[in-house]
Amino acid sequence: MANPDISTDPSLVPDDDPSRRDVILIGAGAFAAIGGAAMLWPLLDQMNPDASTLSLSSIDVDLAPIEEGQAITVMWRGKPIFIRHRTAKEVDEAKDVKVDVLIDKLARNANLPDDAPATDGNRAAPEQAPWLVMIGICTHLGCIPKGQAVGDYKGEYGGWFCPCHGSQYDTAGRVRIGPAPENMYIPPYAFTSDTKIKIG
């Protein structure tokens, strides 16, 4: 390469129109970048819940066999749903609690506005105070709290107790002792008859 031949090597020809070359360079680079970025989204979005997962969106539950004081757990979208037929005493205890003393003052009820306060009325089933329907997942790190079975330790507030890190919930599923930051969530549901609900 001691004596490059200018006449045969185009890269060595003096560039008399730099702006034209810049447009091609920047344009090509920009299209490559946009194309790459556009391809990135499918690569990321493929990990989101797929159509078959989303289609398992609702279940029907018959509440008639659940006696007062009993609780059942059903699966909805792979999550446990706690359905508790609360005793009158449990309902009264939950109603007597002032919202101000709660760790999380929001109802966390998918059927109500986001800013609804965490009163028992906003947590329990509409017009059917004994029924509490909620996602049975501790809002700390996703464990399933104890308290559904009769013999379970239910914590100091008589609701649920999470064995993982000691969070405690009251009879309305509101967190009373941390480290969980939020009340257990209420899924979207509605009564389809007096004793049947549709979750999702």
């Binding site: 990990m47 997962t53 979208r77 792979g78």
Partner: peptide, 11 residues
């Protein structure tokens, strides 16, 4: 997004 669902599962 990490789960590919609403709970830890097959995805």
């Amino acid at each position: 997004w990490i789960w590919g669902g609403f709970a830890v599962g097959e995805p």
